[in-house]
Design a protein around this nucleic acid. Structure first.
Lengths: 371, 371
DNA sequence: TTGTACGCGTTATCAT
DNA sequence: ATGATAACGCGTACAA
């Protein structure tokens, strides 16, 4: 059924005014418990859901805008998005998706962002914009419109709430693991160094070498572009080194470059992992299917989305003054989350770092005898 | 800037009433050209954008709801979504994303769908729901709320608008190609047969065999579940056949199963493509990176999303009575699309089939001498 | 051709 | 504790 039931209908059925119905549903304190109970049961029984548009017009939007890069071949965006979507849905909110063309001029970008701000459609913004795109969001910081950034962009300012991954730690896990397997000449193929995550992984690689007492050899560090072809290209100078200077292991700054390295190894008749051990970064969904299956540093993309979204809700909670109640029992899931998590959520720090996990598979040669 | 500019402000600046502003912006016929020009230029100059919420409340929602499965490990959903997002954005609409849990009870599903319908937030619905999920959408057909389904679900009724792929033709391309390379014992690993796309691919396989004068051998047809492990498992009975009955080529109903088959071949010390040629289906983004790179039947996922969305807009166009104009020059992109494409778009058929494309790579052995 | 007035569903404010 | 009323911003009959 579910037709054009309005708040007036409920008010009439309950014999009260619509104001009271609204109060009851939003958990305002000043409602007689008996009245509230009666109203909520009618709401429940009739299956009344407030019109999202009307709520929005009245300044209580239940929409969250989410920005993603449109060209993203990088499939992990989807995993982040799923995390976001699940939390948004759980909270009884809706998700409005905008895709931003990375190649477009600033103009285009700002158009989208303008639209989000001026349409006043949504209550907050979650930006999943890797690389340079993110910087442009920084200016948007307004006290009444919560924004959270997810991903590897540099936190543009101390004020901008931000969720990311401990890239440096992740890189260290990879290098330590290779060391434990007996490797001493460990190469690194970096990502584009204008991106913070690339620099952090490089930094982790270097600090791990230092901690292990290994010398940093510039000949063993090649930079790529996060794509498979660039990984292939980056592998060539390493493979062309004299056998006694050639690395016995490579840590690639992402999985796609590792794919390219596998391909290059084939051309050179080098076996992975017997001749060269390999570890990637990301745990892209296909990495487990590669031949050999790719050992990699897993980023918790789904959790990244969840966490970013929770942070956003906590900011929303702060900007609205402590309301945010559940819509009767029909939204009990949100009520639960609220009761359980909110005190601590409301105290969430502005910058959150999540941990990576080393996924040990075949390409690192963990099941081979230590060299 | 872009602040709280309302239609009243524009009206005041133009010295007319808000009604006239509204008419001018929506391309209503009964506005003096000079007045319209003046109003639009002011709109342009001030950068006025109507509040999306208010527009929605007034019954002119610019939101499109999109349903996707939440558990989708299947990354192609994201490609479809990008196609949808780009068309939606191009049209000056916004996209509201809902993820549906496949495993949840009907209850859960209907909750989401109910929310979409009763919140009256969006003007139309695009459902990207593979498999069984799709069936539930069928009942939703209402004349005033356009719905389009994308994907492999069976078109639930003649009335339900639907966009899909020519699965049978795609399968035929694979089999014909293998035949041209000299293969005569061609096996097929099917998807789950309760899904229409699996049955269609099987049907294409059989019809191609028939056309080529090859006998259909039930021993060469094994069913899988669209996952890599199921592909691995399905390969075993084929590899265990006596050498003279063993297939020389396998056509897998999707790429993930092909990955499993590659893995199984390793265990059996069978080389791909030298001993067994392999073709998959989908062109999942990682297939090009496999070792060997996977020859596969490409589905145009991005285009699927675009087309589905265009179909949806054409239905929207039908249900609103011939309006749908551009918002002055700021939305010129949509105006362009409108002028260029709409006549034909408005005549789009309810069911649309897109073509597949055979991507020839290494795994089929196309660069080997014909057997 | 243009203006007036109402409706959409909710929340805030001020009364009671 | 509850009610009445005024926004919120736009589209659109209906009137002029």
């Amino acid at each position: 059924m579910a037709t054009k039931l309005t708040i007036d209908d409920i008010a009439r059925l309950a014999g009260v005014s619509k104001a009271t119905v609204s109060r009851a549903m939003n958990g305002k304190p000043d409602v007689d418990p008996a009245t509230r109970e009666r109203i909520l049961s009618i709401v429940e029984k009739e299956g009344f859901k407030p019109s999202a548009t009307a709520v929005g017009l009245a300044g209580r939007s239940h929409l969250i805008s989410v920005l993603i890069p449109s060209m993203a071949s990088e499939t992990y965006i989807f995993d982040i998005l799923r995390g976001v979507a699940d939390v948004v849905t759980e909270a009884g909110y809706e998700l409005v998706l905008y895709s931003v063309n990375e190649n477009a001029q600033d103009n285009n970008r700002n158009t989208v962002i303008d639209r989000i701000l001026t349409s006043k459609l949504s209550a907050a913004l979650l930006a999943i914009l890797p690389g340079q795109l993110g910087g442009h969001i920084a200016q948007l910081y307004k006290p009444d419109f919560p924004i959270v950034m997810i991903d590897d962009s540099e936190p543009p300012s101390d004020k901008m709430p931000w969720v990311g991954v401990r890239n440096s730690e992740g890189a260290r896990k990879a290098v330590f693991h290779l060391y434990s397997l007996g490797h001493r000449r460990i190469a690194h193929v970096t990502g584009p160094l204008q991106r913070l995550c690339s620099r952090e992984r490089l930094e982790g690689y270097r600090s791990a070498l230092a901690d292990l007492g290994l010398e940093y050899d510039p000949a063993l560090v090649v930079s790529g572009e996060f794509s498979a072809p660039s990984g292939h290209a980056a592998a060539l100078p390493l493979f062309n080194l004299p056998a006694d200077q050639r690395p016995t292991a490579i840590f690639a700054a992402n999985d796609f470059m590792a794919y390219g390295i596998i391909d290059a190894a084939h051309s050179y008749h080098l076996r992975i992992p017997e001749d060269i051990a390999l570890i990637g970064f990301d745990d892209t969904s296909s990495s487990v299917h590669m031949q050999p299956s790719l050992t990699t540093v897993r980023q918790p993309f789904y959790e990244l989305g969840q966490t970013g979204c929770q942070l956003l809700f906590s900011l929303l909670e702060q900007s609205r003054s402590g309301r945010f109640q559940a819509y009767g029992k029909s939204f009990s899931s949100f009520a639960t989350m609220h009761a359980k998590d909110f005190k601590q959520v409301a105290a969430m720090p502005a910058h959150i770092y999540l941990d990576t996990e080393l996924m040990v598979r075949k390409s690192c040669g963990a099941d081979l005898p230590v060299r």
